[in-house]
C-alpha cells in the first residue's frame, strides 16, 4: 500500500490500485451499509415495478377498502385498486421526483457557485446577495408561490423543490472554489495557458465534487419528503398517479375504517428517506471525516 494521501480532497483518488479508501471506510459503517441496501432495494423495485406488480395498479379489481389479505397484500384503496401494486409503482414516481428536483437545483446552483467563487468581484457580489436572499426565505414558501403561479402538478413540484435547493449548492461550491482557487495546481493550470472555463470545470470543480455528491444524496431524500408533502396537500401529483403522498391523502378521510390506505404509502416514504439520509451521512463521513456536520 502506498502511504495515505494527505491532500485535502485528493483522498478519494488516493491509492487507486486497491479498493478506494472511502469505500473501505463506508462499508465499516453499519448504518450506511443498511441504508445502501435499502436504497438499492427501492431502486430495483422502481426499475422492475411493471414486472413485479401482482395486479394492475390503475384498475378496480374488487371491493373498495378491503383489508390486507392473501390476494391483496396491502389491501385495496378507495376505488378498489390493489394498494401493493400502487405502492410498488409509486417508488418510480418518488425516486423520479427526488432525482429530477435535485438535478434542477444542483446544475444551476453548482454553476452559480463556481462562477461566484472563481471570478469574484461584482459577479460574486451579485450571486452571493441573491443566494443570501433565497436562504433567508424558507424554501417551502418559495415552493408554494412557484406552485401558485405555475399551477399544481407533479412536474411543477419538481421545479419548485429544485429551485429551492439552488442556494445551498451555490454556497457550498463557492466555498470549495475559494479554498482551492489560489492553490499551486490551479495556478499551474493557468500558467500553462488553459482557458478559464477549462480550469473551472476540469481542475476547480473536480475538488468540489465530494461535498456536492453528499449534499445531493441528502437532498434526494429531502426532495422526496417535501414533494410528497406537497402532493398530500393536493398541490402536486393528481389522481390517478400512484404518488405516495397523494395516496396517504386519499386514505385520510377513511383512516378509522381503512388504516392501510394511508399507512403503507407512508411507511414506503419513510423507508426511502431514511435510506437516502443514511447513505448521504455515510458518504459524508467516508469521503471526508472532517466534513461531518452533526445536526
Amino acid at each position: 500500500m502506498t502511504p495515505p494521501a494527505t491532500t485535502e480532497a485528493g483522498e478519494i483518488n488516493a491509492d487507486a490500485g486497491g479498493t478506494p479508501r472511502w469505500i473501505r471506510r463506508y462499508v465499516k459503517n453499519k448504518g450506511a451499509v443498511f441504508g445502501a441496501v435499502m436504497l438499492g432495494g427501492w431502486i430495483l423495485v422502481a426499475l422492475f415495478a411493471p414486472w413485479i406488480m401482482p395486479h394492475d395498479p390503475y384498475e378496480t379489481l374488487g371491493m373498495a377498502r378491503q383489508p390486507p389479505s392473501d390476494m391483496f397484500w396491502f389491501g385495496t384503496d378507495l376505488l378498489g385498486r390493489d394498494l401493493f401494486s400502487r405502492v410498488l409503482l409509486g417508488s418510480r414516481v418518488s425516486l423520479q421526483v427526488g432525482l429530477i428536483s435535485v438535478a434542477l437545483g444542483a446544475v444551476p446552483g453548482v454553476l452559480m457557485g463556481l462562477f461566484a467563487g472563481y471570478f469574484g468581484g461584482t459577479i460574486d457580489t451579485l450571486i452571493s446577495r441573491f443566494v443570501d436572499a433565497m436562504l433567508a426565505f424558507p424554501s417551502i414558501l418559495l415552493a408554494l408561490i412557484i406552485i401558485a403561479s405555475l399551477g399544481p402538478s407533479l412536474q411543477n413540484v419538481m421545479i419548485a423543490v429544485g429551485i429551492g435547493t439552488i442556494p445551498q449548492y451555490a454556497r457550498l461550491v463557492r466555498g470549495s472554489v475559494l479554498s482551492v482557487k489560489s492553490l499551486t495546481y490551479v495556478e499551474a493550470a493557468r500558467v500553462v495557458g488553459n482557458r478559464p472555463m477549462r480550469i473551472m470545470f476540469r481542475h476547480v470543480l473536480a475538488n468540489a465534487y465530494a461535498p456536492v455528491v453528499v449534499l445531493s444524496t441528502l437532498q434526494v431524500g429531502n426532495a422526496i419528503l417535501v414533494g410528497s408533502g406537497l402532493s398530500f396537500l393536493g398541490l402536486g401529483a393528481q389522481p390517478p398517479i400512484p404518488e405516495w403522498g397523494l395516496m396517504s391523502a386519499e386514505g385520510r378521510d377513511v383512516l378509522r375504517r381503512a388504516w392501510w390506505i394511508s399507512t403503507f404509502p407512508g411507511i414506503a416514504i419513510l423507508s426511502v428517506v431514511v435510506a437516502c439520509n443514511l447513505v448521504g451521512d455515510g458518504l459524508r463521513s467516508a469521503l471526508d471525516p472532517r466534513m461531518r456536520v452533526d445536526g
Binding site: 408533502g229 396517504s248 383512516l255 399507512t263 428517506v273 431514511v274
Partner: peptide, 22 residues
C-alpha cells in the same frame, strides 16, 4: 432522532390520530 428527521409530517400525524384519537 433519525426516524424523526426522515418522517413525512403528514404520515406521523395520521399515525398519531389513528393511535391516540381512534
Amino acid at each position: 432522532s433519525y426516524v424523526g428527521a426522515s418522517m413525512p409530517i403528514y404520515f406521523l400525524g395520521l399515525v398519531l390520530i389513528l393511535l391516540f384519537a381512534f
